[in-house]
């Protein structure tokens, strides 16, 4: 990767990217309330399982398909995978959070790079993984494995930050969790590159129940 492309990736994967990621916990707020996530170990375990078998692994694999679709100028594939992801979201709350973040990123991208507009128009209600793939391909970030790592790393950082706030944990404990997840991040990134369409499946019982519980949680700081 050229140094210049590293900078694009850092910008795209940065927690400062104005897409509102900090307002989503993806069910972690409900899990903390239920006492299922209560310390660094249980938070790390949850994120580990999610990376190995969960929805984020599928999202990463769909992001890969988006990146290829943009490279090939295949707008039909882009729209197909966006609809696929919307239909595969576990809950209404997770669907709207993905759409909100996707919309924000696409809006930003169109302002920075107006040539993205036809892609944005073709996709419609855009999931975040799709918007991320469009951004990475438009900024010509490569190799693709680095793009996936950036996607997964920003997801991890965001949820660890949510956990640190909710449990609560010290900042060092949060950083340690992220470091401990490095091997899972690289494994999932490798898998996301090679997963066939037929093998797109996940274990989502825990996530869907946690997110459904969050939809009716009485007091909450996070929107998912």
């Amino acid at each position: 990767m050229t140094i210049e492309r590293v900078l694009y990736l850092l910008q795209l994967a940065s927690p400062a990217l104005p897409v509102g990621a900090y307002s989503y916990s993806e069910g972690i707020e409900a899990l903390v309330e239920m006492g299922i996530i209560s310390n660094a170990q249980s938070l790390q375990h949850w994120l580990e399982q999610e990376l190995r078998y969960g929805a984020i692994r599928l999202e990463a694999a769909v992001m890969v398909r988006t990146y290829h679709a943009v490279q090939n100028g295949d707008i039909e594939a882009l729209s197909y995978w966006n609809q696929w992801l919307s239909a595969a979201r576990e809950t209404e709350e997770l669907r709207s959070s993905s759409w909100q973040m996707g919309r924000s990123l696409i809006k930003l991208l169109v302002e920075l790079q107006p040539q993205v507009l036809p892609l944005a128009d073709a996709v419609g209600s855009c999931n975040y993984a799709i918007a991320f793939g469009i951004a990475a391909a438009s900024w010509k970030i490569e190799p693709l494995s680095a793009v996936i790592l950036g996607y997964l790393h920003s997801w991890t950082t965001n949820l660890v930050t949510a956990g640190v706030k909710l449990i609560p944990l010290g900042q060092t404990a949060g950083q340690q969790i992220i470091l401990n997840l490095f091997s899972d991040l690289t494994n999932t990134a490798t898998e996301a590159l090679t997963l066939s369409d037929d093998d797109l499946c996940s274990c989502s019982w825990g996530l869907s129940l946690a997110s459904m519980a969050h939809e009716t949680q009485y007091t909450r700081l996070f929107r998912s």
């Binding site: 999610e50 078998y53 996940s202 825990g206």
Partner: peptide
């Protein structure tokens, strides 16, 4: 697609016992 639910469970003690599984 209106709904896509592709569930997978690998027989494994950790997954069976995890709150995620």
């Amino acid at each position: 697609p209106l709904w896509i639910d592709r569930q997978w469970l690998h027989g494994d003690e950790q997954i069976i016992n995890s709150p995620h599984g």
